[in-house]
Amino acid sequence: MTYIEFLQVHGSRMADGTVLTVVQFLLATVVAVVVAVLFGLMRLSRNPGVRGVATVYIEIFRGTSLLVQLFWIFFVLPLFGLNLDKFVAGFLAVGLNMGAYGAELVRGAIRAVPRGQWEAAVALNMTDRKRMWRVILPQALVIMLPPWGNLVIEILKGTALVALISVADLMFEVRQINIATFLSVQAFGTALIVYYVLARFLVTPFMRALERFMSRKIGRA
């Protein structure tokens, strides 16, 4: 069987899997961003209780494995009456995990905004909320986008784990193909190339463009 024939037979399954991988990736990214902003801000709160909750969350999710968290959410939460569909459990686990890493990026970036910016906003009599949304966060966003570029790749790679709870993503499909045909090089090799292309030629250029766009927006082209 040549490689072309292999693709003709199994290509459509892998394409379906790739679509699911991309969907999981996008949803996980949304979850991660929300979690990151929420807990990143909580870490900067003046209230020690709020800060403590965020710290515990971040340490738990960063201190254990994504795979452990995924299995915990999928196999243990139902025992407490919280049944999640495997599709939801998949991107939720990846998003919650990566969000904990993102929260530290958000916190670091906000603290890297120069003090003068905070003082100027206070001097202009802006409300706390307005100061955050109009002055601090836009500048913090430009600071944190480059490390987010790496984190987003980690999210894409993290979604491969959802195959282990039988979400039919690319990883899952090539494993099935491998079991059926034993053509491991072709099956896993193709998947390697697909992930590589997604990361290197779609996600990374997008993040770079976003970086450029955002820094132009705040006048730092």
């Binding site: 790749i153 790679k157 491969a160 282990l164 491991s184 896993f188 290197r200």
Partner: peptide, 22 residues
């Protein structure tokens, strides 16, 4: 290095384990 860093470890584990026997 770029290829290794931008593809999932899980996939690499499978690749290494199953490609040898072929």
């Amino acid at each position: 290095v770029e290829l290794i860093r931008s593809t999932p470890l899980l996939l690499q584990v499978f690749f290494v384990f199953y490609v040898g026997p072929q």
